[in-house]
Amino acid sequence: MTAKIILPILQILVIVGFSPLVKGFINKIEARLQCRRGASIFQPYYNLIKLLRKDAVVSETSSWIFRATPYVTFISILIISLLVPVLSSQVPLNFTGDIILIIYLFALARFFLVLTSLDTGSAFGGMGGSREMMVSSMAEPAMILSIFTVALTVNSTNLSNITNLLLNNSVLLLNPSLFLAFLAFAIVLIAEAGRIPVDNPFTHLELTMIHEGMMLEFSGRYLALVEWASSMKLLLLLTILVNIFFPWGIAGGLTFPGLIIAFALYVVKIGFFAFLIVIVEMSFAKLRLFRIPNLLGTAFILSVLAIISLYVVR
């Protein structure tokens, strides 16, 4: 019983605590690969602490939507972090919802962010918001279909069930359909997390940015919450990817040594995929805006193939 209370808290702490680190790690590796020294990998933490201590400047054109958005975004991502199996495949709160709820909670966060981008009345915000909606609507079908492929392999949409079944039945993982689904999901992840080649998280040049454009007007605590939420989103997407397609090492139960091993392996796996993201970012240029649907279309077609091959061959 105590484990059932501790685990959710542990999960939240891992996601909330480590998400800035992932961002710092990616930035650092990227800098090293570009022969730069780069900021410390703890820099995101320093930024967050600095921002949390500051007052905020709020635009006079904006309304309560602007002030509510950081909280809504942050909370919806926090709820997701309770539903995703992070260290143990037994998620105590898994009766609350499944992967479809998770996808739509991401949508909730996005809905409010885009509203805010229109709220301040600057043209940059609207541009970012409109592009964000475009990218996410193109990514949504691919995401849903690749998740469905996994769900149909194990007959469940509940992430905890999925991880559990795949863990105990590793042969299922060696499935070409799942492989296709993995590729599709990886492309979607890059798009959803706003990384190169879809979006450039480092730029503040209005013609190229998508996600950053929506956050231009935030400051102080609001900016901290939104930034934190976006790095948590990246980590959560990575966690879902890692724990669905490579569940090895995740604790099956709630024992203490199991969780320790799971944590170590989790760090290794996330580190590896973060490194892969860096490699992708280094080797591609940012796509032109209207080339993005092509990339996401490829992801969609991969996911369609995944599900069709699953149906036909099964």
Binding site: L174, N175, P176, F179, L180, L183, I301, L305
Partner: peptide, 18 residues
């Protein structure tokens, strides 16, 4: 396991064709 490995290679070939 063997046949799944070949299957995955096949899928990779399909992806390169795409």
């Amino acid at each position: 396991v063997n046949s799944r490995t070949i299957d995955i290679l096949a899928v990779l070939m399909l992806i390169t064709t795409i």
